[in-house]
Design a protein around this nucleic acid. Structure first.
Ligand SMILES: [Mn+2]
Ligand SMILES: [Mn+2]
Ligand SMILES: [Zn+2]
Ligand SMILES: [Zn+2]
Lengths: 171, 171
DNA sequence: ATTGATAATGAAACTCAGTTTCATTGAGTG
DNA sequence: CACTCAATGAAACTGAGTTTCATTATCAAT
């Protein structure tokens, strides 16, 4: 049987400031291109939201983004953050991720391959992993049922290694 | 490469009335056993909620169960349905399933093996399938990260065969 | 039967993440 | 400078889910 390859994607590999700027420029361009097709413009508020997500080393909630963006610009509104997150999802740059506390989290899809999530019910940490074999058998299953997949969500809830070590043998 | 085995579980295989009664008795007993350990009792309201889920040929929302149970007993309350659904989840008889309309759906885990879901974004239909291979590679991935899985949710959103036929070539 | 303790219930109120409204501001055009 | 319309943020609204609370059912011990 073929070997599975999995990779932890967070924390994101360090980028030099120069590399970050490069990446930022690319992603901003992608966003702007989308906005143009909709007759919209890339405002500084919209850019701020995107920058927050790009700088983050974890999955942010709407409220997280709002708080973070607000540190730079005291007047930015929750509504704008909400609307920008929707735009970013529409153009495929951002995806929603499950959580254990009832608040949706968001992640950049920009520069990363598809992956699934393990979510720790203890500490809320989200572990990202890839499993090409799982994706492969999923494709098979979908085809077999004449279904056409648009997107999927595969989230495994449980306890992460760190929390198990901390709490001892109790599961 | 090994062949994957998938089975559509809904609509549930027909049961003779006698078989249904048998099944009902078993499941009710399981529920009651759990309630006893908590010092609670199996009331007729609680039984009604469970009966609704057992009789249903589709995934019901809280509101669905409430409406259905209400047809039998005009005074049953939304709060009781809510609380009963929670009890049923706690004892492992019922699980929550995703949806496309923002309302959680529930399904009996009672007599069925683990399975995942394909959810049609067009008609809301929920297709159930099993993929032992997927589960296998999932287990591998989980172990590799020192994670302990408690439960998981694997939901594929897209268009079902029926809706694609209806709407023509457009995806 | 009567009492007292506690489980159970349902109507209504509340929560809160998410979403919309609306008056105002800003950016661009002729 | 008008004029148009995208964009914004404060505040109001929404609605699934959840809790509160006054009332009712259950049942064990008199
Ligand atoms: Mn996947
Ligand atoms: Mn599964
Ligand atoms: Zn953890
Ligand atoms: Zn469909």
């Amino acid at each position: 049987m073929t070997k599975t390859a999995e990779v932890i994607l967070f924390p994101r590999n360090a980028r030099t400031p120069a590399q970050f700027q490069q990446w930022l420029a690319t992603v901003l361009q992608t966003f702007q291109d989308y906005l143009v097709t909709r007759g919209l413009t890339l405002t500084h508020q919209r850019e701020a939201v995107l920058r927050c997500l790009m700088a983050a080393q974890r999955h942010l909630s709407l409220e997280d983004v709002y708080a973070e963006a607000r540190r730079k610009d005291r007047t930015i509104g929750r509504a704008t953050v909400f609307r920008t997150l929707r735009l970013l999802q529409e153009c495929g740059l951002v995806a929603e991720v499950g959580s254990t506390d009832g608040r949706a989290r968001f992640e950049l899809k920009a520069d990363r391959p598809h992956h699934d999530h393990m979510i720790c019910v203890e500490c809320g940490r989200i572990l990202e992993f890839e499993s090409p074999m799982m994706e492969r058998f999923q494709d098979e299953a979908v085809k077999r049922h004449g279904f056409v997949a648009l997107w999927h969500r595969h989230e495994i809830f449980g306890r992460c290694a760190a929390c198990r070590r901390l709490r001892g043998r109790a599961s």
